[in-house]
Design a binder for these strands. Structure first.
Length: 348
DNA sequence: AAGTCGGGGCT
DNA sequence: AGCCCAGACTT
């Protein structure tokens, strides 16, 4: 076994994480679900969502049989909702194509929606002990420092080098442990800011440590400033306290989630609202800003209390008057859920 | 190669 | 205030 892997496994035996919920039991479905949830999402955030999800949908078959609103409700607040829709579709494809199980071949895994090369490698390595490398954010950070590779890891030439090193280091034995170990090293020792090189099993041979480059490697993403958009959210509430929600389409942000009707700005809100219900006065609520990774959204919520549902808008698949109980069973964008939770009581 | 897709934690 | 996180997909 190569020196890198041997030292890493020795460290893992004493200091690795061995009590994460997807490690017990470590079956393919749970590894897969954890990998999808962990895409661009930190472990501490995922743990609670993972436990709730597997409690409600413990098997691939139960996921495939669930309806989309149930899956999105379990995902609500976690973000990147396309992951949940891909997960759901992939489970159904496994039932159709692979006898109800995840395939054990790299190509077949990568052909499923939401599974790229790194996620496929993680599933094969961790669930089945097969010798496939991974290259997530942790591994990119560890390897770019260890080998002293400058350049943004998202750039294709850099990423290609990193994949080559990742494959070289991956041992023939103890693949599942090795895969967990290199992620643990990145998450707990070779962290982005102020890495704990004194505790690192690779410090003696790490280029960045030798040359004092841990502060500049890996090379940061080239910065860019993000635009600001704005809209008004319409809170149409009837006498029973129900709120009108609309299911968003398959494209764009919050795809498939239930959200509030929107207008381009507060001045247009009355016109839009009157097309959805018989309304009285508009009551502006405090505006807030929601930040995405690629733009900033200024939201002006406007409350229309004592709204009277129009028959023509009440009975569509993508439009629904919801009480508080129903909200819990639907996927809502995080800021909308917060907004509804903090709504003032109905004025007399 | 660049843009799209969330939300939260950390500095 | 800005950056990053167990990335993948689309254009």
């Amino acid at each position: 076994m190569n020196v890198f892997a041997r030292e890493l496994l020795r460290w893992y035996d004493h200091h690795g994480r061995k009590d994460l919920p997807w490690q017990h039991p470590r079956d393919a479905y749970r590894v897969w679900l954890s990998e999808i949830m962990l895409q661009q999402t930190q472990v501490v955030t995922v743990v609670g969502y993972f436990q709730r999800f597997v409690e409600r949908l413990p098997t691939l078959a139960s996921l495939a049989a669930a309806d989309e609103d149930t899956v999105l409700a379990l995902w609500s607040g976690l973000g990147y909702y396309r992951r949940a829709r891909f997960l759901h579709r992939a489970a159904q494809l496994c039932v159709e194509r692979h006898g109800g199980e995840l395939p054990r071949e790299l190509d077949a895994l990568m052909a499923l929606p939401g599974i790229g090369r790194s996620t496929a490698g993680a599933i094969l390595a961790q669930a089945h002990g097969l010798r496939f490398p991974i290259l997530d954010g942790n591994v990119k950070r560890v390897l770019s420092r260890y080998h002293g590779i400058a350049g943004f890891p998202g750039e294709s030439a850099i990423e290609k080098q990193l994949w080559r090193h990742a494959a070289e280091h991956t041992p023939a034995e103890r693949i599942a442990d090795y895969t967990q170990a290199i992620m643990d090293l990145g998450a707990t020792v070779c962290v982005r800011a102020k890495p704990l090189c004194l505790l690192c099993p690779q410090a003696a041979t790490c280029v960045a440590h030798r040359d004092g480059l841990t502060g500049v490697l890996p090379t940061a993403k080239p910065g860019k400033k993000i635009p600001t958009r704005s809209l008004a959210m319409l809170l149409l509430r009837d006498a029973r306290g129900r709120v009108l929600l609309e299911k968003r389409g398959p494209q764009g942000v919050w795809s498939g989630l239930w959200s509030l009707p929107e207008a381009t700005d507060p001045d247009a809100a009355g016109m839009v609202a009157s097309g959805l219900a018989r309304i009285g006065e508009a009551d502006p609520l405090p505006a807030f800003t929601h930040v995405f990774s690629h733009y900033r959204l200024d939201v002006s919520p406007i409350l229309f209390d004592h709204a009277a549902p129009l028959a023509t808008v009440a009975d569509r698949d993508d439009r629904r008057w919801c009480d508080r109980e129903e909200l819990a069973s639907l996927g809502l964008p995080a800021p909308v859920r917060t907004l509804l939770a903090n709504l003032p009581e109905i004025a007399p």
